[in-house]
Every structure is written in structure tokens, then in C-alpha cells.
Amino acid sequence: MVQRLQTIAAPPARVVLFGSSGFIASALARALAREKIEHRAISSREIDLLRPASVKQIQAELRPDDALVVTSALTPDKGRDVSTLMKNLQMAQHLAEALQGSACAHLIYISSDAVYGSRETLIRESSALEPRDLYGLMHVAREQIIAATAERTSIPVCIVRPCAIYGAGDTHNSYGPNRFLRAAMRERKITLFGAGDETRDHVYIEDVAHLLILCLKHRCAGTINAASGAAVPFRAVASIITDLVGDDVEVEHVPASGAVTHRHFDVTERIRVFPDFTPTPLAEGIAESLRRLTEPQRD
């Protein structure tokens, strides 16, 4: 599903990063800086992919030996409606138009595990694309738009589908480690739906950034999930956090609205492509997130 076009790791000449103010792009920019890889982070304030003018701006920006990483998207917290869907597709349209007239060496598109359905017990890259909402549908459509453009322009494309990402700097407040951490610190309380039996795969933001660096250095083409491979129940996440934050944090259970669901990832493809990559264990990642969250307060 994913292959290294560059067997021996080598940094790209430059990485152009769209959506630079987001959670993933910020972490990637830090990782690129650590790796001393030249990069240019572009936020929507500089080039707004929603505007038609962005086509020419992108073309003026891109160099033939650039690797382009696209993280730009209006996430569900900005809207789950048709209007948001259409805006996201418009962004992809402008990007596609720009790429028709301006080559780059490699393109990484950050998609989402929202492209998958809920029927499969073990999700892998070859799992059926069955989005359950417009956000998932948006990523499916954007993947197709970008893949079709890349085929016409012969740009190798890597689609990265992260599962639930956690870590300091998350701008969302989804049910899971980030929300639990904030709630534990501020309210001394974590609220779980039901018994918290539902299992999810939570991937650490720094691992996602590391994986992206590997994809860039090996000029990977294809599709890869960014997941840890170890799904855990939400109650286990809560337990890790109460151990870290303090015994006085209350774990509250409220009635769950739907059936208990689970989401596991088969990470064999990642192991095959990057056998020396090992994800951060959840407890370690949460401890690190907590440390980063509390550091500024100490300052």
C-alpha cells in the first residue's frame, strides 16, 4: 500500500507546509527544525486556499524539488455541514489547479481515519472507505482529487490517515486523552460515557510528526495509517491520567447514548515500511503531554 521511492533516507530539498497553524503542521514544523530540514510553513493568513487567487500564489511558491505537505482543512469543530464540506473541497480544487501548472517532487496529504467505516474490527489501509459523516466524505473526495491530480502530473503522493491524535498543542477538544487531561487539570474530574469500555487507538502527535518525517525522507508513495496499533479503553486512558494528575481527580460516569464500539488498527503496513519506528507507549505520551502542558504555567 505504501512504498519507499527512496530506499536510503535523504531529506527533501525543502518542505512546504500548508496549514501551518494546525496541530499536526505545528508539530511537523518543530520536527523539521530539529532535523534541520529547510521548510516553509504557510498558514491560511498567507495563502488562503479558499480563494481562487491561491492557485497563482501556490504556483509562485513551489519549486520543482519541494516536498509539499498539505494539512489544511476545516475540521469538524469549524462545522460539520454541507457548507464546510464544499469549502474543504474548494481548497482541494485550488490546490489541484495549482499543481497542474507547477510541479513539486513529492506530496503528502494528511487525511483522516474518518474515511473508514465502523464495521471492520481491525482497520488497515486496504479497509473499505465508508465515511460516516461529511468530514470523512470530504477526506475521501480530497484524497481522490489529489490522487487524480498527482497521476496527471506524475507527482508521487503519500496519503497519511491519522487516527485520534493526542498531545500538547491540540486545538480540538475531542473525547479522549486531550479532553481528559484538560478536565483533570482544571476541574479535577474526568467524564466517561458508560463504563468507558470503548476502545480507540490514540497516536501521539510527536509520533505522527516522526512518521511524516520518515515519509518525507523516503519519498513514500501510497497510503499509510498513522496509528499506534494498540487500542485501549477510555477508562484505561482515564486511569493513566488520574495516576499522573492526582488521586483526587474524580472519574465520573454518565450514560452512553449509543452502543459500545471499538476501533483497532492493524499497523503491519507501517511496520513493513518503517520497521525501526516504534510508537510511544500511551502512558509515556500522556505523561509527556502533561509535562508540556504544565511547563508554561511554571514559567
Binding site: 481491525l122 488497515r124 492493524d266 499497523v267 503491519t268 511496520i271 513493513r272 520497521p275 516504534t278
Partner: peptide, 12 residues
């Protein structure tokens, strides 16, 4: 295919 890779997952 999944089972074939059992050993790879164990080695990792």
C-alpha cells in the same frame, strides 16, 4: 495476508 505477517508483528 494478515496472518502471513504475524511473525513480522512479533519481531517488531
Amino acid at each position: 495476508r494478515y496472518r502471513r505477517d504475524w511473525a513480522l508483528r512479533q519481531v517488531h
